[in-house]
Design a protein around this nucleic acid. Structure first.
Lengths: 101, 101
DNA sequence: TCATTTGTTCGAGATTTTCGAAACAAAGAA
DNA sequence: TTCTTTGTTTCGAAAATCTCGAACAAATGA
């Protein structure tokens, strides 16, 4: 597994962030990372195909939402909360507070 | 011009809201309605085709972001701020505060 | 070395988005 | 009534996205 691309959050637009979170699967991933802390892709597995999940993670990474580091055969994902808070003050807190319908 | 459909904001999901705002044109429309108050579609006109703009408004309406009322030959659009605030406390305020890059 | 686990990448089909152009609808003005 | 304005809807085509299975890559374990 190659190292993956992670953009500088400072260069991510608000529209990109909202686009990434504007999908039920991706929003749930972000919520769970916030609540349950970092974890592997498989632990977050929803009812979508493996390749689809990987695709969602790619979009989340490219929007600066998620950081993925290698660990053995796994990839551990975490929310880039502190950086997002600096770039978009209050946004993630508001979204996460509201997230549980 | 027919009357248009406006959903009950209580039935809109957070993912739908973020999806609607996760487009540069639609995000800008929401920002301008918040800052400048209600206005017609033509006043908000960006550099997109008329039909595309109409399409964006439809998505914003169906996500509960915008209310459009008839007034003569025009349609006056406004942010459903109070209802959004009730449904998603703090979210719109955070987004609008951050919106100007 | 060989098999397993965990994800990524590729390829293809289905859906969605975007656009311009044209047709249409409703209200106002000439 | 006829013309103008404003915006919606439909059409067709190009571009982007979503989803899945299959193939691939890297690390671990037997």
């Amino acid at each position: 597994m190659r190292e993956l691309f992670h953009p500088d959050v400072q260069q991510v637009s608000l529209a990109s962030l909202l686009y990434a979170l504007g999908d039920p699967v991706r929003l749930e991933i972000a919520q769970r990372l916030a609540r349950e802390g970092e974890q592997s892709c498989s632990a977050l597995c929803c009812d979508v195909a493996k390749s689809t999940l990987s695709h969602h993670f790619k979009i989340l990474r490219e929007a600066g939402v998620v950081y993925s580091r290698k660990e053995g055969t796994q990839r551990i994902n975490s929310l880039r909360k502190a950086e997002l808070d600096q770039r978009f003050p209050g946004v993630m807190d508001a979204l996460l507070a509201v997230a549980d319908n």
